[in-house]
């Protein structure tokens, strides 16, 4: 797979504040990478440098091998960019704006008409096609922004919070769209929404205070969660004592915690040592000791927890 987007030791300072500090990563063709971090972590600043909007203080960004700083116009030809908040010219209609973008991108005549028709259907802009953008709802504005970003079928897409302000149906549609176009593109999206990462991203990069604190598949990140591979059992309250005793002695179990459940039931959390998978062993012990387990499940770990741990500690 070839690298289409490359951030190489990007650094940006605003006065005394280092907003982006030595950030390096690559996005290959076919990859959707989620760019996560709390507000003010430097996501937007990084994306602006990649899009060539902000000058860098150090490092370089390349799109399809073209240096963004040195050949901005050539690099941008390969880029579809959705700025934060999907800004546009409010007095223009989606038709007018997309026509303008198509012309600037060098699309003319029938090819342009054809592409605009496609986008109109693709992003369901029929109802608002000839209405001023400033009168549209947030969801439609965002979709117009997405339309201008993908209009020229670019190799690289950089989308700053593409689903911000959309309702669940619209979010679903945007994710579906991203998945459809993903195979032959390199896509970088920033988001706050962690379920989105699990839904569409092949990889997630977490930034905090301008630095990358984690870079891996959503599964690998989940493995860093505090309750990764924890086995949760529900048992009747009167069997709690015996169950605790039995489960503590299972190999590779670090500890067993007890939490109150409902209807006279108790929840036991079997925490493994070093994130090991203890479910088979726990199951075996349940059978051997004939423990009255009502429900047994293994937790995969929540990205939320990983996110909080990483971005707070850094």
């Amino acid at each position: 797979m070839d690298v289409l987007l490359e951030a190489d030791r990007l650094t940006k300072r605003f006065g005394a504040l280092t907003a982006v500090d030595d950030v390096s990563f690559q996005v290959r063709r076919g990859e959707v990478v989620g760019f996560l971090g709390p507000n003010g972590a430097g996501k937007t600043t990084t994306m602006r440098m990649i899009a060539g909007y902000l000058p860098v203080d150090a490092g370089r960004a390349r799109l399809c091998g073209v240096d963004v700083q040195q050949q901005p116009e050539r690099a941008r030809a390969a880029l579809g960019y959705l700025p934060e908040g999907a800004p546009a010219y409010g007095e223009m209609t989606p038709l007018g704006l997309l026509t303008f973008v198509a012309q600037v991108r060098g699309l003319d005549g029938n090819a342009r008409q054809e592409r605009l028709r496609e986008l109109r259907a693709y992003l369901q802009l029929d109802a608002v096609w000839r209405r001023p953008i400033e009168t549209l709802s947030k969801g439609f504005k965002r979709r117009v922004g997405l339309a201008q970003a993908i209009l020229h079928d670019p190799d690289v897409l950089v989308l700053d919070e593409p689903t911000d302000g959309l309702d669940p149906n619209q979010k679903f549609e945007v994710r579906k769209l991203l998945q459809t176009i993903a195979p032959d593109k390199a896509i970088l999206i920033s988001t706050h929404i962690l379920e989105e990462v699990e839904a569409v991203c092949d990889r997630a990069i977490i930034v905090a205070r301008g630095r990358i604190v984690a870079d891996g598949t959503p599964q690998a990140l989940q493995a860093r969660a505090i309750d990764h591979n924890v086995v949760a059992l529900t048992v009747p309250a009167d069997a709690a004592e015996r169950s605790l005793e039995e489960l503590r002695n299972v190999a590779q179990v670090a500890s067993v915690e007890q939490q109150p459940g409902s209807n006279g039931e108790l929840l036991l959390l079997v925490r493994p040592a070093n994130g090991a998978d203890v479910l088979p062993a726990v199951n075996a012990r349940i059978r051997e000791a004939a423990l009255p387990a009502l429900e047994v499940s293994r937790r995969r770990g929540r990205l939320d927890d990983v996110f909080r741990t990483l971005t707070r500690a850094a």
Partner: peptide, 10 residues
């Protein structure tokens, strides 16, 4: 913010 939109076009 439309400046960012305009100046990130080629």
């Amino acid at each position: 913010g439309s400046l960012e939109f305009l100046l990130t076009l080629p």
